[in-house]
Nucleic acid binder design. Sequence first.
DNA 1: AATGAATGAGGCTTCATTCAT
DNA 2: CATGAATGAAGCCTCATTCAT
Lengths: 216, 216, 216, 216
Amino acid sequence: MSSDTSKSKSLSRRERESARHRQEMLDAAEAAFSEYGFEKARMEDIAQRAEFAVGTLYRFFASKDQLYLELLREKADIMEKRLGEAINAGKTPLEKVRNIFFTRLDLFWDHKAFFRLMVQETEGSLHKPRLCGDENLAARYQRFLEQLKDYFEAGIREGEFRDVSAHCLLAAFEGILRNYVARLGYLDQDAPRDPAEEEAMFELFSHGACFAPKSQ
Amino acid sequence: MSSDTSKSKSLSRRERESARHRQEMLDAAEAAFSEYGFEKARMEDIAQRAEFAVGTLYRFFASKDQLYLELLREKADIMEKRLGEAINAGKTPLEKVRNIFFTRLDLFWDHKAFFRLMVQETEGSLHKPRLCGDENLAARYQRFLEQLKDYFEAGIREGEFRDVSAHCLLAAFEGILRNYVARLGYLDQDAPRDPAEEEAMFELFSHGACFAPKSQ
Amino acid sequence: MSSDTSKSKSLSRRERESARHRQEMLDAAEAAFSEYGFEKARMEDIAQRAEFAVGTLYRFFASKDQLYLELLREKADIMEKRLGEAINAGKTPLEKVRNIFFTRLDLFWDHKAFFRLMVQETEGSLHKPRLCGDENLAARYQRFLEQLKDYFEAGIREGEFRDVSAHCLLAAFEGILRNYVARLGYLDQDAPRDPAEEEAMFELFSHGACFAPKSQ
Amino acid sequence: MSSDTSKSKSLSRRERESARHRQEMLDAAEAAFSEYGFEKARMEDIAQRAEFAVGTLYRFFASKDQLYLELLREKADIMEKRLGEAINAGKTPLEKVRNIFFTRLDLFWDHKAFFRLMVQETEGSLHKPRLCGDENLAARYQRFLEQLKDYFEAGIREGEFRDVSAHCLLAAFEGILRNYVARLGYLDQDAPRDPAEEEAMFELFSHGACFAPKSQ
DNA sequence: AATGAATGAGGCTTCATTCAT
DNA sequence: CATGAATGAAGCCTCATTCAT
């Protein structure tokens, strides 16, 4: 990854340019897909945003599908990395879960366009062929969910979570988080970030909407 | 709403046939859109499922967009009606909210294909032109959300809900419900209905994932 | 094939039209491919010649390749049929060979455009993927050549042909015939049919360019 | 024709390099065109085979068409030269014809890839614009055929050939030769050279497939 | 001269929509 | 009303050619 120190400079002028262009295309694609959705976004839209000709896109990505896939992969890598760190930073399961919650919100604010895209395309589409590349993104998300479920299970054993089936916890967690993000990405598009609200959402996840029942 | 008793009898042979055909087309459209998504579903797919010719579709619906819209409108009407009844059946805000939760689950199990469709197309797409017909479905959903928010606000005043901002309550509620439904519609497609699980989800909404803090 | 006498008339209006249109497209394709070659002929050229829109071609043929293939198949069927009859009409191997020679010339004059096409595309291209459909046309031609070779072998045994290896006879025969046809199809495009010349060509095949060596 | 001895020495280092590169490109083009055919061969294919960049091809050849043309010209020069020598080496018309036959076979075995190309592209394509450069290759081949025809005419006058119209002799000769070569270039691609077979083919040209008729 | 990234016209194909029967 | 063949605009992709380095 960062191992070409000496020679990289000789090969680099071109290579760096190339990498930058590739990134510009991915960014343009992110914007276009996010705005129009995968189907409606035209390769020419993307090319124009990236300020390249259509043909140039095809020097970097074999097809529209492939471009989409690489975009997802790139983002997934970033998120997996940051989430991994966040998870490690938490000691107890609850801490881990909490870190996941807020890190995903951080990620949302850093990659808003991409989350719009995810919301549009991911929700029920994880099993769509388009999203199933070699390293299957759906599977990646599934794996992440499994991991998350493990924390819930651990948390239950350790008495941090109530004794509800872990996959219900998971569903509630994901639901609250994803819906909150979807709302911010669409309906309240221009609302600024509001830490208090975020805290409230997590609080709702942990303690619910109602007052605690008497005995317990 | 329901019946035009007097006039229907004179024209009815024809009218009833026509209405039946129209319904068959809507059903076919529901199935096709749900399976392929809006963009990928072809008018011919729909025609075939409905056992009509393509041209015939156009006698009933001006365009693919319009067909989609009318499908959504039809379903929205059904849901609005049943939800209205459920709401009326509840006395307190909490009861209303609870009824909404379970009635929407009932609706999911009665209109699975349609919910798949909603999950695919709705989440972030409510503002998409396609969905914005004359009577704006997005607006309808918004109106429903406003109403729901009112119940939360009332519930807060009446001490049934904790004193969290109503729109956070709303977001948590919608998130948990929608995500649960999305999961059932996609990942666990063949799982049978599980009332205990549904109850658990609602319980998570009301009392959260963690044990109640001591003092409160 | 010819079994739908009674009912065919009711279904036919459309079906016959359809068959006619299909044939018009095949004819247009024959002309276009023959004039420009497969690669350079555009689907739009074909559509224009057939006086249809491009899209209409695709109701009948799945792709340009497929259209080409069906064209070849259609012609191959015609030729196989007529050649079969010609072969049967000959008693001795020599007669069969002679009949093949002249029937192929008949076929040339009846399907000039197609022969131009064959000359362009067939010569060395029989093994090209494009030409290899389900019923492999290259294989069909090969099979025909095998059959022809059998007649040469039989003719050798029966003393009608000189004792040269049959595949050399075959090569000479095909060479003379195909080259003659190629010439007529291209260089002397407007020359009228000349039976004397045809006879001379066959005579050259049978007795060669030089006078017979003395003793033999 | 052959050498610019004086001037070549001053510029030669560069010039020789340049000439060598040009030749490498022509060879690469020969290979690519021969394998894929003119249309399907990409300039990049050629560049890669030649181990140059695409742009460099354009320093030597103005266009793909031009490159093709120059390739043909180069080969045509070689062949014309060798055929000229072969012709001169023959005393009588028959000897000349015989020499042409075998020299063209020699040329085939020395330039197999090119003959594959010829077979693919030449047969009926001599009148194609692509092949019609300034010095019109079709015309060159025509001129050669005219010359060949002259030998046949002379041979007829001198009693070496039977009294058939010279252009029929020509057609038979070319047909046998070209078809034999096409066969070797495609179907029996890996067959080794077989002098006996070659002799048999020429023998078939001269004395035909059948036994001589009694009286003559 | 050499490079190879960038260009963009042009081809194939799809599919919503129309219309003659 | 029903039909389904026909239409043609629009999208994806390829590749000959150019040009800044």
